[in-house]
Structures are given as C-alpha cells and as structure tokens.
Amino acid sequence: MIEIDTITKRYGETTVVDTVSMTIAPRTITVIVGTSGSGKTTLMRMINRLVEPTSGKILIDGEPNSAIPGYELRRRIGYAIQGHGLFPHRTVAENIATVPTLLGWDKSRIDAKVKELLTLFQLDPAAFGPRYPHELSGGQQQRVGVARALAAEPNILLMDEPFGALDPVIRAKAQEDLLAIQKHFGTTIVLVTHDMEEAFHLADKIAVMDKGKIVQYAAPQDMLVNPATDFVETLIGAGERPFRLLSIGTVADAAEAGEADGEPIAAALSQRDALSALLWSGRQALPVVGADGAPLGRVTLASLTRRAARPQ
C-alpha cells in the first residue's frame, strides 16, 4: 500500500505538484494521466525519492519512505523509465541483473531470475542474454527495461510511459504481458501514460492530474459516468465513452450461455474487441472460448449494446 499524504514539490516559485493526497491499494494498477507538464513524472518520482518532496510524506506499507536511504528504497521499488534507460555497456543479462547484484544475491539465484524473466517476456535467454542493448529492437529493449525493473521482485513497480515508443501491435502485446505479470507477482503498479485507451484498459484506478493537482482519482467506470470536471471529460473524450466502458470489461464477463457460429473470441479480450469482431463479421453473436480453447458460451451484440449504455 502506498499512502501519499499532502505532498508538494516546488521548484523555486513554481509548484509542480500541489498538495496531492491519494492511497494506492496493494496489488492494483493505478494509472496517472494528464497533460504534459502537469507533474505526473514528478509525483511518481517522489515515491522512490528520485525527487525529494518540498513538504508532505509518503508511506509505503505504513513506513515513511524517508526512513531508509534513497538508494536502498529504490532497490526495493522497480522503476521502468521512459525510453528504457538500459546501460549500453552491459549485456541484456547484466542489465536485468543490476538490482539483484546490488542486493548481493548469489550468482545462481541471479542467473535463474534472469532466465525466468527473459522467458516470461518471450526472449530466448540463450540468444538475448549475452547481447548488448543496441543489438535489440525498440520493443525488445522496452521489455528488457521492464524485466530489469522486476528483477528483484519488488512489491511496487513504477512505470513512466513505458510503452510510449512502441508500435500498436507490440504495445498491445506489452500491455497483455504487463497484466499477466501483475497477476503472476501480485505487484502494485503505478503507471504514467498519455494514452487514454491504455489507461482504461489497464487501470484499476485512474488519477487525472492537471497543473500539479489531482482533479479526479477514481475507478475507470466511475470516472466515465461522473467526470469530476470539464477537463476530465475532455480528456476521456465525450464521443469515446461507450467504447471506453466496453474496454474496461472482459469478454468473459459478457459471455452468456448459448451457441453461435463464426470465428470464436478469446474470453480474455476486452468487450470492445468483441464489439469490433461482431460488427466486422456482421453477426449478432459469436462463440467465446477460454485460453485452453474450451467453449464458454457466446457473446451477443445486444448484450454489448446494453453494456455500452450509460449506467443508471
């Protein structure tokens, strides 16, 4: 759990983060959105004390984060930064091993961890481990950056626009990976993005920042239904609301008993994906299958239409 308590950061006269308070529940994904320069990165960096706050405090699992030296704190909190920041003079394996090495893990444990993470991110350890970062594609570098942040099994992972530089296909893949990893390790994730689509897809809770303040901090659905300010409404995009609503829920949630013809849809996809598939195939219903291919019923256009309507 991360408790942010009336935290403020000033640079000279300008207040960059202005008396922000919020509580982030463990094992959730919190997404921070907002215009450029609104203080998202600064807020996030105060959690691992890359930036020292001017006033206020932050508790991590009840302990003030100022209780231990900054570098020790940072070894316990994963941080994946914009543009990955891999060390160019170290191999992929060495990059991932950075924090475990700093923590003094023994070699076999480090090797095992590197292998596990590379495999998890679908990079062959034998092929990619010994390579240098510049020998990787942008998407692969990005994944290594996240793997490095996860290497010491941190309870908390901070991610600053981690998928900003990726093409749409790889980005979608990376998002799925992230959700899988979050499930796997039960990590508390705080993520900054400019992509509202991404925010609604990943977030358990969304925080909207504007000029250093949190203007709304709510579950995606609540935010769609009751945007706190005009700014939040604009940010969500009025025309996008039904689709955002659908993108929050999974196909599994919308599945009902019954059968349908046509190309089956995976239960893990979002309802928005299901809507697309239905519209494109011109059918009223499509079959739903689980990850193992077992049939789980069907999803209908009618039920999706209902779900996309403003909740009463």
Partner: peptide
Amino acid sequence: PAIVEAARGTGMTAWQRLIKV
C-alpha cells in the same frame, strides 16, 4: 540522461553510479 536516471532508479549509490555506469 535516461541512463543516469536509470542508474539512480535502480538504487545505485553515487559511488556505484560513478564506477559502474
């Protein structure tokens, strides 16, 4: 800057950053 940041972010001390990065 991204690399220096990353070095700080992974919890290296000032000395470790200098020597290792």
